[in-house]
Write a protein that binds this DNA or RNA. Structure first.
Ligand code: FES
Ligand code: FES
Lengths: 146, 146
DNA sequence: CAATTTAAGGACTTTTTTATCCTTTATTGT
DNA sequence: ACAATAAAGGATAAAAAAGTCCTTAAATTG
């Protein structure tokens, strides 16, 4: 469903949110440890997310990645399409040239419903809200570190 | 959602079903043309599906791939997990060691519903039933060939 | 300003997925 | 038995995804 890059990206951004709730910036290394992901790969993904304004970054001592008010509106949908593109939400699931209502593929009518469901799930909560749940202990980002 | 191999596989098997409805065996080349997929790759996928008993095959003149009564029970779920494995239905969508109700990842509760939805969609119709819809002209396997 | 810290950037390697090609084996019809 | 046909199998190639490493640039602190 999601690429590895996307899985790491989701966990990393939620972790950044968790830390930013208490005003802390976090470095790539710390993030990688806490979301159980390879550090250099995670750094690459974050680099990209900074360019796409999903998170902010600051170089130098006490720098790191962070989020603030300006990032509050983003949902998983924004994050997923930033990393994996929107192939999950658009195009034919069987690879036909285009998804078409007039000439549907055998999966079309059912896939359409699933896609709406996926879209709904990815937009119903902001990344910040997901971080609050991690903060509460309702959900976790890794099985290694609480 | 589905790998290329799986997309080709789904279309190929439905095409085999369509042809088998009128008693015809079909060769890999014909299949590849009608589902708009690379021929040697499609042949490899079918080879695998024969080993896994999702379709039958016959060598020699007038041979090819076919399905019969013994294949009638198979659904997309069987086909998809034969090709892509069941990563789509099991395991944690964020890559945590295991999907767990007690220590859920941030997506767990929503993903679970989506997964049930996907599973339902993949099991509600048999491959044969999907082929009947193609036969009717309700759905298509390619944009190139009616 | 110098030293240190941390992200950014680019080149590179490895693994997986996608795709092709060629040889062998089984089957059929003559 | 023989030629023709079509799948099976194995080896290889190309492309994409995943992952690493090293150098550069920016910011901070003293
Ligand atoms: S035509 Fe295939 S998903 Fe719409
Ligand atoms: S724990 Fe991640 S999907 Fe269940």
């Amino acid at each position: 469903m999601f690429s590895k890059a996307c899985q790491y990206g989701i966990k990393a951004v939620i972790y950044i949110w968790v830390q930013s709730l208490s005003g802390a910036r976090v470095g790539a290394k710390e993030i990688a440890v806490h979301v159980d992901a390879p550090e250099p790969f995670t750094a690459k993904i974050l680099q990209d997310l900074v360019r796409k304004k999903i998170v902010g970054s600051q170089k130098g001592p006490n720098g790191g990645f962070y989020v603030d008010k300006s990032h509050e509106k983003f949902t998983l949908k924004d994050l997923v399409s930033a990393i994996d593109g929107d192939g999950l939400f658009s195009g034919c699931s069987l690879g036909l040239r285009e998804c078409s209502e007039e000439n549907p593929c055998p999966l079309h009518s059912e896939i359409k419903k699933v896609r709406n469901h996926v879209l709904e799930m990815l937009t119903k909560k902001t990344l910040r809200e997901l971080a609050l749940e991690v903060n509460n202990g309702e959900t976790v980002l890794s099985r290694l570190i609480g």
